[in-house]
């Protein structure tokens, strides 16, 4: 992997990208931008408290990737949903799991190794089972409808996604 000397090292805080969404429409625009830069094989770690809008962001990405909107919903109970879009999407939720072993038993490794986009809600609970190079999105509630999204990379592949997302958002920012 060629190294660009002008880019900060992967996983350093400086490589993070911020996006402020004043309302849900902005989250939809963000989802469209994300869907435009994602590639199969990507694992996205979603981190944020109850009500932060994790499922809402997955909906935005999946809809933009052509998934039937009726199929997209919270996987908290079913643990993983599969959607057919531009790429297959595996939508995980670890909220109900007791420990990382249960996530492992779910077959996480096989899902991650597939040619799909994997999105994991409450990913901070299963960090050690995520691929070393994953795309991390932290969501913070900043107001009734406003959210702050922080994108960061943990390796060269996710760093490339952060860069491409920054470009995509730069050209569509309201």
């Amino acid at each position: 992997m060629p190294c660009n000397p002008h880019r900060p090292a992967p996983s350093s805080p400086a490589s993070a990208l911020l996006f402020i969404a004043p309302d849900e429409d902005a989250t939809s625009r963000l989802g469209a931008a994300l869907a435009g830069v994602l590639e199969s094989g990507t694992v996205i770690a979603l981190v944020g408290n109850l009500g932060a809008g994790k499922t809402r962001l997955v909906r935005a990405v999946a809809e933009a990737a052509g998934v039937d909107r009726r199929e997209i919903r919270s996987p908290t109970f079913v643990l993983v949903h599969e959607y057919e879009g531009r790429w297959p999407i595996y939508h995980f939720d670890t909220y109900r799991l007791h420990d990382v072993n249960e996530f492992e038993q779910l077959g996480a490794a096989e899902y991650f190794a597939s040619a799909a986009v994997c999105i994991v809600e409450w990913a901070d609970r299963v960090t050690q089972l995520l691929p070393t190079d994953h795309f991390r999105i932290e969501i913070k509630t900043t107001g009734d409808t406003s959210r702050e999204f922080r994108f960061s990379a943990t390796g060269p592949k996710s760093q490339r996604l952060v860069t491409r997302l920054a470009e995509a958002l730069g050209s569509t920012r309201p």
Binding site: L50, T55, R56, R59, R69, I72, R73, S74, T76, F77
Partner: peptide, 13 residues
Amino acid sequence: STIDDAAGEAFDK
């Protein structure tokens, strides 16, 4: 159907 949380899930959360 639900577009986000199921009703039972909302009770739990």
